[in-house]
């Protein structure tokens, strides 16, 4: 029910690489597609072709500009979905027990047939990970594609969340953070993965890899040797001709 488990057997979640994400929104679309056609009620849209279209999405991509003290600003594309927090504030506020965190893998889910649509869980989430479906009146959130990752009816390579499977840049990774040797744990350790709003004490499972530091043009570039100007002084036979001609009067050296 809405009491959080002390410990989950696995900690399934995502690593999102902010250095690699190109901001194409493919993960947004594949998420919307999979979760509209499969588990739970469809993700509805309101006025999709009208003024101010609105819809339910479980994954959104923001774009930020980061301006360092010195040097050029950097564009960072920033996908954001449920972080499946260890101390998920959205779960404990739920009055009906519709929201819960699974003991076996730590996934935070909503039992839609018990949800009264009070919206309190969305208020309690600092990350904006939950959206109330305007058509169904129930809360929707990322399920970590719980209907894919254990699904034996689909090929093994597809048993990962839809957003991860789709990402053309390889900016999203799925795995078990409880296992220190898993790909996601090692990636997080190697690249200094971070929590969003750590001061909230939510202990998100999902980690973000910060952008790598960029090359500076001030240091010598790898390409520099190839960019040196080609000699303008002719050599060999042409050089001898040039020399001899230059000896003759009437040359307009200054103007050349």
């Amino acid at each position: 029910m809405t009491e959080l488990p002390n410990l989950t057997e696995k900690k399934l979640g995502l690593v999102i690489d902010l250095d690699t994400c190109v901001g194409c929104h493919a993960c947004v679309i594949s998420c919307k597609g999979w979760n509209t056609e499969n588990y739970g009620v469809p993700l509805s849209d309101q006025r999709p072709y009208g003024d101010e279209p609105m819809g339910t999405f479980l994954n959104r991509v923001h774009t930020y500009e980061v301006q360092p003290d010195a040097g050029p600003a950097q564009t960072v594309h920033f996908p954001k979905s449920c972080l499946h927090c260890e101390t998920a504030p959205c779960v404990t506020v739920c009055p009906t027990g519709a929201s819960y965190k699974r003991v076996e893998d730590g996934i935070v889910l909503v039992n839609e047939s018990n949800c009264i649509g009070c919206g309190l869980c969305a208020w309690a989430c600092p990350y904006g990970a939950r959206e109330l479906d305007q058509e169904e009146g129930v809360m929707k959130k990322c399920t970590l594609c719980v209907d894919r990752i254990y699904n034996e009816n689909i090929p093994e390579e597809d048993r990962i969340p839809s957003c991860v499977r789709t990402c053309p840049a390889g900016a999203r990774h799925f795995g078990d953070f409880a296992d220190p040797d898993s790909d996601v744990s090692r990636l997080t350790a190697e690249r200094g993965g971070i929590d969003l709003m750590p001061e909230m004490g939510t202990q998100p499972v999902n980690k973000y890899l910060p952008p790598r530091s960029k090359d500076s043009w001030r240091d010598e570039s790898l390409l520099a040797p190839y960019l040196e100007p080609v000699s303008e002084q002719p050599s060999g036979f042409l050089g001898w001709v040039d020399k001899q001609l230059s000896r003759l009067p009437g040359d307009q050296k200054e103007n050349l």
Partner: peptide, 23 residues
């Protein structure tokens, strides 16, 4: 702190994920 990018520099929202207000 929200984006975790604060130590890299000043963070500015450049583009929202959607063109009109959501829930």
């Amino acid at each position: 702190t929200a984006t975790g990018l604060g130590h890299e520099g000043e963070v500015r929202s450049m583009a929202h994920p959607h063109t009109s207000p959501n829930y």
